[in-house]
Each structure stands twice: as C-alpha cells, then as structure tokens.
Write a protein that binds this DNA or RNA. Sequence first.
DNA 1: GACTGATCGTTAACCGGTTAACGTTCGGCG
DNA 2: CGCCGAACGTTAACCGGTTAACGATCAGTC
Lengths: 148, 148
Amino acid sequence: MPELLDLHGRTNKAIRAALDAALQRHGLRLGQDHLLAALWERDGRTPGEVAAVARVSTPAVTKLAARMADAGLLTRRRDDRDNRLVRLWLTDAGRALRGPVEAERRRIEERITADLTPAEREILLTALAKVHRSAADLPGGDPIGEPS
Amino acid sequence: MPELLDLHGRTNKAIRAALDAALQRHGLRLGQDHLLAALWERDGRTPGEVAAVARVSTPAVTKLAARMADAGLLTRRRDDRDNRLVRLWLTDAGRALRGPVEAERRRIEERITADLTPAEREILLTALAKVHRSAADLPGGDPIGEPS
DNA sequence: GACTGATCGTTAACCGGTTAACGTTCGGCG
DNA sequence: CGCCGAACGTTAACCGGTTAACGATCAGTC
C-alpha cells in the first residue's frame, strides 16, 4: 500500500471529519462553506459561477443551494435580463455566518499545523502543490477542470 | 481561505479522481480496492474486521461487498460456528485483481511524487503524519477510531 | 432451561459528489 | 419572422461514506 496515497487519504478523511463537526456547530455541512464563500466574495452569483470558483460540478451547487435555501441561508431568484440564469442571494443569516465560519476554518488550520516547524510547514505546502499539479495532470485527475 | 486546508482538499480530490479512473479500468471503484486488500491479506474476514482494517464503517463494507459480490469478485457466506458472523471469500476473479490493482496504486504513487526532491518527499511524509495526528485528535476528527 | 444483555450484520435515511439526460431560454442567422 | 444551435439550470441515477435504528444470534446468569 503506497505510503503517500494512504497517508494523504487518511489525513484528508480526518480533516474533513473535524471540519464537518466544526461547521455543524453553525448549522452547516461540509461543502456548504465553499458555496457561501463564493457568495461572500460576490453576492448574486449564478450556480455555474459558484461551481467554477468552488471547483465543483454545477449539479452539486444546485443541490447544496436547495438545502441551504430551505435552511434560510440564501434565496434563488431568476435573472430578469437573462431568464435561463438563476442568481443566488445571501440572506442576513447567510451573511452573518461569514465571521464564525471563517474563524472556524482558521482555527482548524492552526490546530492542524501546530506541531509543524516553520520549515516543515513551508515544504509541506510547496510539496503538496507539486503533488496536486502532478495528480491533476493524470488521466481523470481533474474531471471538472480539463475533461477533454 | 486557509492555505493548507484548501490545498490539501484540492489535492485529495485530484488524487481520488485519478485513482478512481485507474481502478475503473479494472472494473473497480474507489473504496473497493481497500476492501480487496483486506481480503488479499487474509481471506474469509468478516465485514467488521474488514471495516476495521480499511478504517471505514461496517455499513460501508456491507454495501461495497454487496456490489462486489454482484460483480463476481467475492462471495458472502455465514460462519458455521457463529451464525451471526458473515465471512467474505474472494473468488478467482477477486484474487486475480491483486497484481494489477497494486501495480496501479504504485504507478499513481510514483507519478504523484515524481516532481519531489528526496528531501521534499521525506518531509512531506513526516509533516503529513503530524497533520494527521493533530486532525485525528480534534473533536470529531476520527469518528470510527475514537467516538467516545 | 429460559431470560437478558452484548455482539454482529443489515437496512434506512441522510450527505456531498459525479456524469448523463432533459427542458428552457437566449441569440445569431437565414 | 422563424429556426437552430449554444448556454444554463435542474433532474435522475449512480457512488462512497456516515449515523441511527433494527433484527438475529450467541453467551452468561439466574
């Protein structure tokens, strides 16, 4: 069992679980913070735009947005000028989550890198960037990025 | 958006996608290789045992095993002595996949670490191990490992 | 020997994510 | 003006994964 593959997978699983638990304390689930982040950056984006910046498929955004609209975090409204577009607008509740959620993410980032020396932290980031590039270049490595 | 959190997540996504594409060429899907690995190591394990070594929940193994049984990779048989136990037995097809699948994992591991210097590779592993430990110690960081 | 509690696998109901098929709407072009 | 293709969001059908509820079996105890 290849080392990096296994270690990286287990690490990601632990991170995801911890992050999910943290988000859940604010009534959110795992991918929803990325969707919100896209709207915090610019409100009124379309599902397609959100999907692009969140690096997720458009159907994923559709479903997320539906659940989050039910939860009262955002509203969906058709664009007046182009009627096939849908625009996602934050509610006050959705806007109010920005501070707490960003703090939560920072907190986890800190805890996770707490035991690393400055040198380790730096090399970890550069090495991970290389690995990411290599993986994305593999066949099927970036389905949404470059499918053709 | 915290650096490591984001980078690690994107990297994992790319790795998973590439690995899934590779496994798919052998008629497998993402988690199924771990289940097979547990049986390659010792055939006739129970779902609970497999779940433990694969670090997955037992229901996950149940569903995986059902699909893989349909695909003819293994068979499910009750234990004669303890009738609440179920034992998973590899078929010839399941056994035959060991070489190709392990090679596929090694291949991806190599490609992914190809651009790393020996020093980077070493520090990446040690740093990732630290991160994993820290993440697992976070509340909710290891649901199956230490829920209490 | 019967009850009672622990152990184990399965099922159901979720969640996030993907691809493929679908229905609308827009825009260019004849 | 009408058509036809491109763009967009939604839906459906999967997949892997989780937790909670369920049912069956075993084992210890009275």
